[in-house]
Structures are given as structure tokens and as C-alpha cells.
């Protein structure tokens, strides 16, 4: 069973990303949207944490939130729009949104 974890809180003021990374399985993936895309802020400590997991972490980022914040997608991550978000929610067995 695989889970798509969805985060929307800024990782700089919140514990959700840390907790999520701790329990993320090899078949699972992470979708960042809203303020959670600040995780891709260049030269940040959070980005370093993600980069350290780039070999195993399946990372998706909602494109509109990157564009709004003038952030760039990472070479090893995948930028998605809403139709692709819908596809991801079907591809994975369940979706766990960290509300």
C-alpha cells in the first residue's frame, strides 16, 4: 500500500514536514502545495534536508504555488498541475493530507 502525503504549511514554522519525513515509506510520495513549497527556498536548511533524501524521496510540487513564490522546481522533483494532482491521488492507494 502506498500513500501520497500532502503538506501545505510552511516547513519553517511547523513540525508537519519533519513528522511526515520520519514516517514516509519507500513506496510513498510527498506533494508540497501552498506555503509548504517554501521547502524549496534556495540555500535554506529545509532544502538541504530534502536534498539529502533526493535518492529515495518521490517529491511532487504544485506548480501554481511555485510560480506565485518565484521558486524553481528541483531537477529531481516533479512539478504538477491539478489534472496531474488528480492522477497522483489515484496512482497512490490513499492520500494523507496533513491538515
Amino acid at each position: 500500500m502506498s500513500t501520497l502525503h500532502v503538506l501545505s504549511h510552511s516547513p519553517f514554522s511547523d513540525t508537519r514536514l519533519g513528522s511526515c519525513l520520519r514516517i514516509l515509506g519507500t513506496d510513498d510520495a510527498l506533494l508540497l502545495c501552498g506555503d509548504a513549497v517554501y521547502a524549496l527556498q534556495p540555500h535554506s536548511s529545509i532544502l538541504k534536508t530534502l536534498e539529502a533524501k533526493s535518492d529515495t524521496l518521490k517529491l511532487f510540487v504544485l506548480e501554481e504555488d511555485l510560480l506565485a513564490r518565484n521558486l524553481e522546481c528541483l531537477p529531481w522533483a516533479t512539478c504538477v498541475d491539478y489534472p496531474r494532482f488528480v492522477e497522483l491521488s489515484i496512482h497512490y492507494d490513499k492520500v494523507n493530507s496533513w491538515l
Binding site: M1, T3, R22, I23, L24, G25, D28, K94, N96, S97, W98, L99
Partner: peptide, 18 residues
Amino acid sequence: SADEVRILIDRFDQVITL
């Protein structure tokens, strides 16, 4: 443990995190 939490989530059909 973290591993057991992951296995627990796997075991359920749907999950709501509030």
C-alpha cells in the same frame, strides 16, 4: 515507532490527519 506508524497507515484504507 516511526516504522510501526508507517505500517499502521498502510494497514488502513483511508486516513485523515487533523
